[in-house]
């Protein structure tokens, strides 16, 4: 197994270039020319609304986008995995990239104890004995903050709360020290107090283990509080990317701005909510030019003909817009 790049360096654990996912007949492009990277010890948030292609991106990265046309490069720890045969890909899943999902209850096997499921993963990838795997599973359950790891080991999914199940999923995901964790809406199904605990846990693991995290989410609050960088997706494309602080302080893309304004804020007590006019277009019927143009107050003729290219806004950020909100100096 390759050693992880040390935390805090600029080494990328994941480098994705020009990833495109389309249906077999190429009629619908679900993910379009996506380029991003995740460094060790960093959380990159992929932010977008339903149907923007963010979950499809995560599946494509895991090489689980079956029956679809996928192109582009996916470099994991310096090795291109985009074209690996399934036999070579299988041991990488779980060991080098792990994934957690939105609904932890349904991601666990209901008829086996959660400890057995973690042990199985460890035994499969690390070849440990039954007893050693059990020890390691119990240690992991403790590491993810479950109060009584020995008792939890023998528990079944239905005996645990949603938050506890998500902790179990995290324990399973980190059991083989993956370099990259893909978290697909891991807190959407949970209560706010539990959401905070789970996000705090992921944040701690990121720092402690130097793991890269790709956080797929629609929740701007989660992004603002926990992510280091963010990529904003709209209708299959990343339209803006940058450091969280820079992006939240001065969003460049009108869509990012609109999303931020729609988000209810505890401090704001006005009656009406800011809403972006119109609706997200269907992927099978995208407007020509910039996909956001029909909803955008800044759009002109150019926007309805050509999709804007990447404009760098600072060292780490770009925007794809002909009329960004604050033009970089």
């Amino acid at each position: 197994m390759q050693p992880h790049p040390p935390a805090g360096t600029n080494a990328s654990v994941l480098d994705v270039a020009a990833l495109t996912v389309a249906t077999r007949d190429n009629a619908v492009v679900i993910v379009n020319d996506l380029t991003l990277h995740v460094r060790a010890g960093e959380m990159l948030a992929l932010l977008g609304e339903s149907g923007c292609g963010k979950s499809m991106t995560s599946l494509a990265l895991m090489r689980l986008a079956d029956g679809l046309n996928t192109s582009g490069r996916i470099t994991l720890l310096g090795r291109d995995i985009a074209t690996l045969p399934e036999k070579a890909m299988s041991p990488i899943r779980g060991r080098e990239i792990a994934m957690i999902f939105q609904n932890p209850m349904s991601a666990l096997n209901p008829v086996r104890s959660v400890g057995q499921q973690i042990s199985e993963t460890i035994r499969r990838h690390k070849g440990l004995s039954r007893k050693a795997a059990r020890q390691r599973a119990i240690a992991l359950l403790g590491e993810v903050g479950l109060a009584d790891p020995v008792r939890c080991y023998d528990a079944y999914a239905h005996e645990l709360s949603g938050g506890m199940c998500q902790r179990v999923m995290i324990a399973m995901a980190i059991s083989c020290d993956p370099a990259l964790l893909i978290a697909d809406e891991p807190t959407t199904a949970l209560d706010v107090t539990i959401q905070k605990q789970i996000m705090d846990l992921l944040h701690a693991l990121k720092i402690r283990r130097g793991m890269g995290i790709l956080m797929i989410t629609h929740d701007l609050g989660v992004v603002a509080a926990y992510a280091d960088r963010v990529a904003v997706m709209y209708a299959g494309r990343v339209v803006e990317q940058g450091d969280v602080h820079a992006l939240f302080s001065a969003p460049h893309h009108p869509y990012t701005r609109g999303l931020m304004d729609s988000m209810p804020d505890l401090a704001d007590t006005s009656d009406r909510f800011h809403a972006i006019p119109g609706m997200v277009p269907e992927l099978r019927a995208l407007p020509p030019g910039c996909s956001f143009a029909p909803r955008c107050t800044r759009a002109d003729v150019q926007c309805t003909h050509v999709f804007p290219g990447h404009t760098m806004v600072d060292r780490n950020g770009f925007v794809r817009c002909f009329h960004p909100l604050q033009v970089a100096a």
Binding site: A147, G163, G221, F248, L266
Partner: peptide, 19 residues
């Protein structure tokens, strides 16, 4: 527990007690 809407707003208080 409400997530902040801006990364520079007040840091969250210590985590809520466990389950």
């Amino acid at each position: 527990s409400v997530p902040r809407t801006h990364p520079l707003s007040e840091a969250p208080a210590p985590g809520a007690p466990a389950e």
